[in-house]
Nucleic acid binder design. Sequence first.
DNA 1: CTTATTGCAAACGTTTTGCACGTTT
DNA 2: AAACGTGCAAAACGTTTGCAATAAG
Lengths: 161, 161
Amino acid sequence: MKNQPLSTAPLISYGTLLSRFKELLKADNLKFTRQREAILQTLYDHTGHFTPEELHRLIKEKNPELKTGIATVYRTLSLLEKAGIVTSISFGTQGKKYELGIKAHHDHIICTKCGKILEFFDEAIERKQERIAGEFGFVMEDHSLKIFGVCPECQNTTGKD
Amino acid sequence: MKNQPLSTAPLISYGTLLSRFKELLKADNLKFTRQREAILQTLYDHTGHFTPEELHRLIKEKNPELKTGIATVYRTLSLLEKAGIVTSISFGTQGKKYELGIKAHHDHIICTKCGKILEFFDEAIERKQERIAGEFGFVMEDHSLKIFGVCPECQNTTGKD
DNA sequence: CTTATTGCAAACGTTTTGCACGTTT
DNA sequence: AAACGTGCAAAACGTTTGCAATAAG
């Protein structure tokens, strides 16, 4: 059981995702709007991690008729994150990046040169964290593990870019 | 080798710390100012993790004659962090908290109810992270591990506060 | 006397909010 | 019709920066 880049392919079809989203909305008396669909669609269509601003640009490119505002992107991303449909990585003051997060929990390894983000999962680390939380008497709710380094491609650059 | 809260007592005397700071400044042709000393002093006197704003308030309380500006606090904290004298934890968009960081590398466990921050170090997790970085061909530079949960004290509160 | 440092206020980048208007149910 | 969602612009937030005045070496 060696670490591999986790697959970046969506685990479920868009139809299934959409139904799930609609159910969640209904359960909270929230409304299914064109903007919310466009945001979900964009997240589904693009593999990787995006800032709200990047998503906003992508959404406007593909759905120019909607004039979606950045505030709606933020509001919807919060909504989707609370619902467990997307996950985010924080980059401090530089903001957050979001991705469709139907997949299982994972951690991140980030290239400090090019910003590339890879995902991994390590069972031993997961268990160790639970144990540490327990030793402190904490009830663990969540954790965040980020490894920063230089990716193979960037190690080969001469540094002239 | 079980996990314990790492000692929060400063490992060196204030005098030693001060000398070290002065040396570092001299080595870079930087100047030793009243404000920089006040900031170092405040970090030394207060155990724990503080936002720049909290430190600013503490510094002004104890050194009202200095009229230290928040910008100087930020500038000095960066300086101290680069010099390896303080370390910071990032809380996403909510900013960073700083502490005197002469001690060895450690990770954090954070109570999501009261904000309490405890420190720990786990050799196995450290090694595992190096190995994972290696498996991806990365040269590891840094990492950040935060465990979030509810501390023993907050588990006992009835939730009425 | 030279150079670094300061406080202040303005600028910054990201995120949130108030509100009148629009859409969904 | 009722309730929720929207875009917009303004505000908020933590942080950084330009600059003339000041203090350190």
